[in-house]
Design a protein around this nucleic acid. Structure first.
Length: 299
DNA sequence: CCGCAGCCTCCCCT
DNA sequence: AAGGGGAGGCTGC
């Protein structure tokens, strides 16, 4: 039924044995789920056997939590370097040091959010893929964005292993007519994707320039792209370029800041600036805690 | 500089 | 049962 999910028997033969990614991942089932499937990435889901399965670039892996130990495995036929996995999951960075630098000691709202999602991390996804998925995100819920990504992958993405497709490259997307993207339920976002694809193909260095640039400069560059405003740019920079100071302000964060920090009638831009100043160098991580916490309370 | 409707489509609500 | 309102925004007026 679901193309990303294989049955239990097939899994055993297709996949290499489980390997550890480290005893001290700090993850709980909750914070792992929130990291993989809480709005940073739209490419993870639970298999029949209860593992997480996800894909980026041409990599497919599965993850599971065995006690405190995060484990991973990849299809036998594919080559997935361990370093790639560590980098994507941001396990190589000093997590506790970042937490320590957040102002939770003087901010009880943040403190409570961190406690309830300890282990939550910011992923380091490929920038191009991150930009693509957030171009589709406007006025869409997470399940809807996941479906759009899946449709695009199945239609225009390379098949990595049987049944699992990579997201389409920007080069491929540039070849696709806007009307065909609309057929994939993209709606008015089809125009953004087509126009952005054309620009990126004409300027092949664009995304690597963005990634190498300081935060503010990268943000301005991304916002030159059609369909990319402040929020989408910040999401791409935070989840796809390792710019941890980016502070995306969506409706959830706006609601949280307004209610909990008493910032009524502030514009989205003002809230983003407040977030970067108040939460500091790792504002984006604080944002993710607040975002997850706010959504949890709504459930 | 600010505020606002319109944009595709799906889903939930009455 | 048909129709309105809103959903992790951006653009142009």
């Amino acid at each position: 039924m679901n193309p990303l999910v294989s049955d239990t028997q097939a899994e055993a033969t297709i996949y290499a044995p489980w390997r550890s990614l480290g005893e001290k991942s700090c993850y709980s089932e909750d914070s792992l789920a929130e990291t993989l499937d809480g709005g940073q990435s739209f490419r993870w889901q639970i298999t029949d056997s209860g593992f997480w399965q996800g894909a980026w670039n041409s990599f497919v892996i599965q993850l599971r939590l065995k006690g405190d130990c995060l484990q991973w495995r990849a299809p036998r036929e594919s080559t997935v370097p361990r370093e790639e996995v560590l980098r994507y999951l941001a396990i190589d960075t000093s997590y506790e040091d970042m937490i320590s630098e957040l102002p939770w000691r003087s901010d009880s709202v943040l403190e409570e959010a961190i406690q309830s999602f300890h282990g939550l991390r910011i992923l380091k996804q490929p920038l191009g893929e991150t930009l693509f998925s957030f171009l589709l995100s406007s006025v869409k819920s997470i399940p809807q964005i996941k479906e759009l990504c899946l449709l695009a992958a199945q239609q225009y993405g390379e098949e990595i292993i049987p049944g699992v497709h990579a997201l389409p490259t920007w080069a491929r997307l540039a070849e696709v007519e806007e009307v065909d993207l609309r057929k994939l339920k993209f709606g008015y976002r089809a125009k953004y994707v087509s126009a952005t694809a054309n620009r990126l193909v004409n300027e092949p260095e664009f995304l690597s320039i963005v990634e190498a640039a300081p935060y503010e400069e990268g943000r301005s560059l991304l916002m030159e792209l059609p369909g990319v405003g402040g929020k989408v740019a910040d999401c791409a920079l935070l989840f796809g370029a390792g710019k941890l100071e980016a502070f995306p302000v969506d409706t959830w964060i706006a609601k949280a800041l307004s209610a909990r920090y008493n910032l009524n009638d502030w514009s989205l831009d003002q809230l983003a600036t407040f977030g970067r100043i108040h939460f500091g160098r790792f504002a984006g991580l604080a944002q993710q805690f607040l975002f997850s916490f706010e959504r949890k309370k709504a459930r």
